[in-house]
C-alpha cells in the first residue's frame, strides 16, 4: 500500500457538467511522482476539460484535486501555477507579438515579483536574460531570441511553449497534445524533448499519436464520454477489447 504523497497529482471524483451534459464524470486519477502518464481517448472524451479542471481553468461541479497530497480544489488557476502545476494548451499558446526571449522572460517574471514595476526599465530584469537564453537553447531555439513568436514554424512554437512552461520549473506539467498538427520531422524532436525535461518532474500528457504514447508513457488512462474506461500500461490498454471498440466507435484521424 502506497502513501498518498507517492502521487504528485490526484483527482477524486472529478465531475464537470455543462448544463445537463457531463463532459467529465466521476474521474479518479492518480499520477505517480516522476512518471509520464498519458490521458487518451477519442475526440470529445473530455481530456481537455479534465486539464481545465486540474488547473482550475474551470471550476469542477464536484470532486477534488490534490497536488502532492494537498487539496488545491479551492485555489485559483494562477495560484495553482505558483504551486508548481503548470499546463500547456491544445492550441499553440505563445505570445505571438513578443520575441522568443520575451516569451520566456514573462514566465520567468512570475516568480520574481517584478511584474508590476511599470517605472523600471527592462534593464532591471536583464538578469533573467541568461536563464531565458538557456531555456531557449534547451528546446533547440538558440539564436532565435529576437524572433517574434508568430514567425516561428509550428513545431518551434510548440517547443517555445514547452520552454515557457519550463521557465516556471514546474513539479507537474500537463501537456495537451504537444505533437498535434506536427509533421513527422517535428514529432521525434518534441518526443525527445519531453523525455529530457521529464527528469525530476511529473508529466501528464494528452496525446493522440499512440507511438509517442508508447515510447514515453509508463501509465495510460483511457477516457471515454467523460468517464475513465480503463487504466494500465500501454500493452494492457492497447489489448483491452473495450478500448479497441471505443476507438473504433470514435475514429477519425489517428
Amino acid at each position: 500500500m502506497s502513501t498518498p504523497t507517492d502521487y504528485a497529482l490526484e483527482a477524486r471524483g472529478l465531475t464537470k457538467s455543462f448544463g445537463g451534459f457531463h463532459a467529465v464524470k466521476d474521474v479518479n486519477l492518480k499520477v505517480r511522482r516522476g512518471a509520464i502518464h498519458a490521458l487518451i481517448g477519442p475526440n470529445g472524451a473530455g481530456k481537455t476539460t479534465c486539464f481545465n479542471l486540474l488547473t482550475k481553468t474551470l471550476t469542477p461541479t464536484s470532486g477534488q484535486v490534490l497536488l502532492d497530497g494537498q487539496d488545491i480544489t479551492g485555489l485559483r488557476s494562477a495560484q495553482v501555477a505558483r504551486l508548481g502545476l503548470v499546463r500547456s494548451f491544445q492550441i499553440s499558446a505563445t505570445f505571438p507579438h513578443l520575441t522568443c526571449l520575451e516569451n520566456i522572460r514573462v514566465a520567468l517574471q512570475s516568480s520574481q515579483g517584478t511584474a508590476f514595476r511599470f517605472w523600471r526599465s527592462l534593464g532591471s530584469i536583464k538578469a533573467l536574460n541568461e536563464p531565458a537564453r538557456a531555456l531557449l537553447a534547451q528546446v533547440g531555439l538558440a539564436g532565435q531570441e529576437d524572433t517574434l513568436a508568430t514567425e516561428l514554424s509550428y513545431g518551434k512554437k510548440r517547443a517555445l511553449e514547452i520552454a515557457t512552461t519550463l521557465a516556471l520549473d514546474p513539479k507537474v506539467m500537463l501537456l495537451d497534445e504537444p505533437t498535434a498538427g506536427m509533421g513527422h520531422e517535428d514529432i521525434a524532436p518534441i518526443t525527445d524533448l519531453i523525455r529530457a525535461v521529464s527528469a525530476g518532474r511529473t508529466i501528464l500528457i494528452v496525446e493522440h499519436n499512440l507511438s509517442v504514447v508508447s515510447s514515453l508513457c509508463e501509465r495510460i488512462t483511457v477516457l471515454q464520454h467523460g468517464e475513465v474506461l480503463t487504466e494500465g500500461t500501454y500493452d494492457e490498454v492497447s489489448n483491452d477489447p473495450e478500448v479497441i471498440t471505443a476507438y473504433m466507435g470514435g475514429v477519425d484521424d489517428e
Partner: peptide
C-alpha cells in the same frame, strides 16, 4: 517607460494571450 518596463512586458503578453498569462501564475 511603462511600455518598456517589466510590467509592460507582461501587459503585452496579456494582450496576446490572457489565458496563457494566467496559466503562468
Amino acid at each position: 517607460r511603462i511600455v518598456h518596463s517589466p510590467f509592460g512586458e507582461v501587459l503585452r503578453a496579456i494582450r496576446d494571450n490572457e489565458d496563457r498569462v494566467e496559466s503562468l501564475g
